[in-house]
Amino acid sequence: MKEWPLWEVFIRSSHGLAHKHVGSLRAADAEMAIGNARDVYTRRNEGVSIWVVRAADIAASSPGDKEPLFDPARSKVYRHPTFFELIDGVKHM
């Protein structure tokens, strides 16, 4: 019989951060994947919410597109607050 599918696991910690990828596991169905994720990835109070996604269902950017995808953002320095110099005496900005 075929191997169980691979699932990617995302956990939201109790600190209010967004779900974060923590690893993968194999499971026959979604319910099992959530149970396994709980047992494998939250043994030390790591989380309060679990997402599982079949690895095969994830669309990813390709490394060949790295330059067109990410380099253009580098030149937009004015998106960052540190780009603007504050005059002396300005507070709360």
Partner: peptide, 11 residues
């Protein structure tokens, strides 16, 4: 029967 289940059973 599978590693994930080992971990679950131990829990």
């Amino acid at each position: 029967p599978v590693l994930e289940e080992d971990i679950a059973t131990a829990n």
